[in-house]
Design a protein around this nucleic acid. Sequence first.
DNA 1: ATTGAAAGGGTTCAATC
DNA 2: GATTGAACCCTTTCAAT
Lengths: 143, 143
Amino acid sequence: MDEIDLQILRILKANSRTTSSDISKMIHLSVPSIAERIRKLEKNGVIDQFTVKLNRRAMGQHCIVYIFVQLDGSAETHKFREAIVQSEHVLECHHTSGEYDYLLKVALAEISELEGFIMHTLKANHNIVRSNTVFILSTLKEE
Amino acid sequence: MDEIDLQILRILKANSRTTSSDISKMIHLSVPSIAERIRKLEKNGVIDQFTVKLNRRAMGQHCIVYIFVQLDGSAETHKFREAIVQSEHVLECHHTSGEYDYLLKVALAEISELEGFIMHTLKANHNIVRSNTVFILSTLKEE
DNA sequence: ATTGAAAGGGTTCAATC
DNA sequence: GATTGAACCCTTTCAAT
């Protein structure tokens, strides 16, 4: 990965539909070269996927919360992991250091759905010692 | 937005380079109709942008942390906001409810860069009462 | 919303440097 | 690795239904 690759990545991050011929005009490199570099960036796993960023409000996700979760040490964590990862409400799930074990980023249509999520998805058959929910009031930056 | 739009969004989210003619074969709708629906989804702000998801490791971001920040009530928050939003290390910045005021998601090359980030970007000339850093050990899901 | 056709443009390949 | 030129394919657009 050289400086040219980084330029290409920057352009694609801003707009993944930018064509190789468009990029060619921007960075003065031939179209086949650019196409090949993009192929390699994909093959090497630098580019995970081409995707679209959806507007949460337009998608009806008006309530975004972070939930910290502490698991019972004796719990079989893989069942918890499976249930969480499969939930369509869970945008992110990280294993964390510190006071808690996991940090979830959760999207809900509205706040009234939170209780159901915590009761039925989060605490259903998982030995959760405690959890702590942080509400997002507004978002200044989100890549 | 009807069910067909949702199908199109699902396909584009998985791969934003899927062409209208490819989608046409998947959902049995004519190419011009699909092209027009995508245009409208963009125009209406449902699709924020076409982008690529980059692999953090490949990009040399080996250290991801969440940092909670509490500001001095008298502080001029807009200066803090500007500095944070402009930092290339800050992936996300949310205004939150609860014990702290802001939650940042920060990407660093390695843990040794954290001190510099906290000292020079976070606490430089901003009246920060306290902060709390949570380290990501591993990520199970990240949309 | 669909169909069909025309036009324009992007991608890819092979050969070359 | 990068470039060029040509062939092919696809996308877009328009008009008519």
